[in-house]
Amino acid sequence: MAWTRKDLLTMRELDPGEIQLLVETAASLEEIATRDIKKVPALRGKTVVNLFYEASTRTRTSFEIAGKWLSADVINFSASGSSAGKGESFLDTAKTIGAMSPDVVVVRHSSAGAAALLARELTCSIVNAGDGAHEHPTQALLDLLTIREKKGHFDGLSVAIVGDVAHSRVARSNIHAMKKLGMTVTVAGPPTLIPPNVQELGVKVSYRLDDAIRDVDVIMMLRLQHERMAGGLIPSLREYSRYWGLTLDKLSAQARPDVLIMHPGPVNRGVELSPEVADGPYSVILDQVTKGVAVRMGVLFLLAGSRGGSPA
């Protein structure tokens, strides 16, 4: 199995072998984090530009660390304090950066399809670091790497994805990837936050937290964006938390003793996750962050490690 794509845009377009290659490459790079000297020369002389039009801590930082550990030069661009603030269009800014010959552009944007647009317009490799409510493939990959380490395999595992599925690119990328790897996925949340016809993606739907988390191997809690309340999709944070917040009581009543609790971050403590669960023994939230660096190293290496992703 060899990587042949120029870009990483979605999990939807990948085949199971490509997903496995990404996960395995990331797994083999994990040991770099444990070294005294956290640097290997694999991407020496390559340039990675982080083009972020939305706020981000862990994704941008982990792409930056990943690039630096592989010896690439990493440049961070954020929309505030740049020409984008002067009204330059997204595409003009991207083409300007493209004209400086980067090898990889990592892009986050609030519009679905932003990364795909750049992939068409720029000759360098594009990594989608989140495009609107569409996809966030590296998040799905780091979730998979975490699950693989804890469970040892993917096939036959059951996962509940709980919360604001409708607006979640994390949920979408994970659903596509998990289905391809033979996992069973249930999405759960209040009806206003579950997309209509989501069953077409091959998932089950539940409108009760207790039912969704019973006997699954993995519970993935999603972040509730505060603006959802302003949009009238939930009556109040308190009510949401009461029905959909994961607490120790609900967990011990319904969940398996070896369940994994995941969350893409940042956590709204006391809303979707009680602090005892977020910091508890089932939680792998910080493992996910650690795996995030390995996954982004793997992605950058596969895209830029061999002639900018188009192997001879």
């Binding site: 042949t4 790079l29 694999a42 061999s306």
Partner: peptide, 22 residues
């Protein structure tokens, strides 16, 4: 030892496979 990340000919070899140093 996996030396993939240290090769000087990555550009000439097509898609590399990293198998990890242990």
């Amino acid at each position: 030892l996996d030396i993939t990340l240290y090769r000087d000919d990555l550009d000439m070899r097509g898609a590399p496979v990293v198998r990890g140093t242990d």
